[in-house]
């Protein structure tokens, strides 16, 4: 699949996909979108990179690390990072649910504040649900990419 066309397309498409994913994540609390779909879209961007440039491209080309060809895929440093992302995301989601308990509100209660007079934005709405969405996002990205890179390597 690593034709010139594929690689050129990937260069253009991947940033767009990532930006759309992030916008879906940020507006997900009251518009269509949210952590799950943003996570799936982000994973798609990574999959395009994997297809166009190969499984080792992230480590060798982007992070500049050496790749040991004989390694087991599940102990790969990138995969370990994916798994850590999964765990951290889960922790974020749980903690974001627990915080309202400390403030004497039910588990998973959400609220929001509107900031006026923010430079550039003027009017910015910050929802607590974003924290939960961020957790979901990390879980989905971490989980999907772990599966894709381990199964893809086998």
């Amino acid at each position: 699949m690593t034709t010139v066309i594929m690689r050129t397309t990937a260069r253009i498409v991947v940033p767009i996909v990532l930006i759309v994913a992030i916008s879906l994540l940020i507006e997900g609390h009251n518009l269509p979108g949210g952590g799950f779909i943003a996570g799936v879209l982000t994973s798609t961007a990574f999959v395009i990179v994997y297809i166009a440039f190969g499984l080792d491209f992230l480590e060798r080309g982007v992070l500049g690390r050496d790749v040991d060809p004989g390694k087991t895929p599940s102990r790969d440093r990138v995969v370990v990072a994916y798994r850590r992302l999964f765990t951290v995301g889960l922790a974020i989601a749980v903690v974001s649910g627990l915080v309202p308990l400390a403030l004497d509100h039910p588990f998973l209660s959400q609220s929001y504040i509107v900031l006026e007079g923010v430079p550039l934005y003027h009017h910015l709405e910050i929802a607590s649900a974003l924290a939960f969405d961020l957790g979901v996002y990390c879980v989905v990205v971490g989980g999907l990419l772990t599966i894709i890179s381990v199964v893809g390597a086998e």
Binding site: G28, H29, N30, G33, G34, G35, F36, L108, Q110, Y112, V114, H123, E125, A127, A129, F132, D133, V136
Partner: peptide
């Protein structure tokens, strides 16, 4: 399951 826990139709 995900972001649906926010109040529906919140008015900014």
């Amino acid at each position: 399951g995900g972001g649906g826990e926010t109040g529906m139709g919140t008015e900014p």
